[in-house]
Design a protein around this nucleic acid. Structure first.
Lengths: 139, 139
DNA sequence: CTTGACCTTACAGTGACTGGAAGGTTTATG
DNA sequence: CATAAACCTTCCAGTCACTGTAAGGTCAAG
């Protein structure tokens, strides 16, 4: 199967698939007589695995680990779970930080008259040292 | 004031300050006789403004706009507010996506026995096509 | 025979820095 | 006065996960 077809089937960009090969996340694909990459059903499954793992928020290094565990017949499932839970915690932290940022932005916006005058409390807030709610929360 | 001192006072890395100059986010700093960058109190304020804006989640391009508005005496405050609200919405979207990812990860983790056996429902989940809650939500 | 849709490689660019090399300057100490 | 450390300078490369572009080879249809 040519790379374009594989791209369609997996939802990955053809460029992305070549890139995964380049960084050795994937074994080099077999080549047809004309030099085109030729993918097997097995390759397709690996690619789909990667697509889902990336989609679930794992970065390339984590995908590499997951793929190794996936292909390791002597793996222990607790290792897989540990990886997933660690990732979940990381995502939770990111959510918290973004929520703080979101509150901060809404608070900034609420300060502004939003008219045709140049006076803007947002810019003042960014210019000066203030004890905002956020600052207090972080202190 | 030397760049190292400025870095300490603003919380920005000295490298970052040079980088901001390089991409013309900042005017080139005055130079002392020895060639060292020499910062004024005014420069410090601009840097602090940038530090807070970056910290609030604005990217470099947005910081550039904010800085322009900051220095534009004929600005209209509604333009500033529009920028902030747009950013807030973007952040809200990011939070939603991360929450979906978080639920997905916890669901994955809950499937796994977490023992010394190789059987792992997480890897199965990533290997196969499933109608997960998320898939339904997106459909 | 040509057009267009594929495929190939290789290199550059993204964003926002960070690290490192190679060298000049300043300050503190023996 | 020598030297070491802690600064400063520029320039180039690397990060992450791709994406874009150029320059070219291949294939199927009309």
């Amino acid at each position: 199967m040519n790379i374009g077809q594989v791209a369609k089937e997996t939802g990955l960009n053809a460029k992305t698939i070549r890139y995964y090969e380049q960084i050795h996340l994937l074994q080099p694909a077999k080549r047809a007589a004309n030099g085109y990459r030729d993918y097997s059903e097995q390759d397709l499954e690996t690619l789909r695995f990667l697509q889902r793992a990336r989609n679930a928020g794992f970065n390339i290094e984590e995908c590499r680990q997951l793929l190794n565990l996936h292909q390791d017949k002597t793996r222990q499932s607790q290792h897989v779970k540990a990886l997933v839970l660690e990732k979940a915690e990381h995502v939770a932290t990111q959510i918290k930080e973004l929520k703080i940022m979101h509150r901060h932005l809404l608070q900034l916006a609420s300060l502004c008259q939003a008219d045709e005058e140049p006076n803007c409390a947002i810019l003042e807030e960014l210019s000066e040292q203030h004890d905002t709610q956020e600052d207090k929360r972080h202190a």
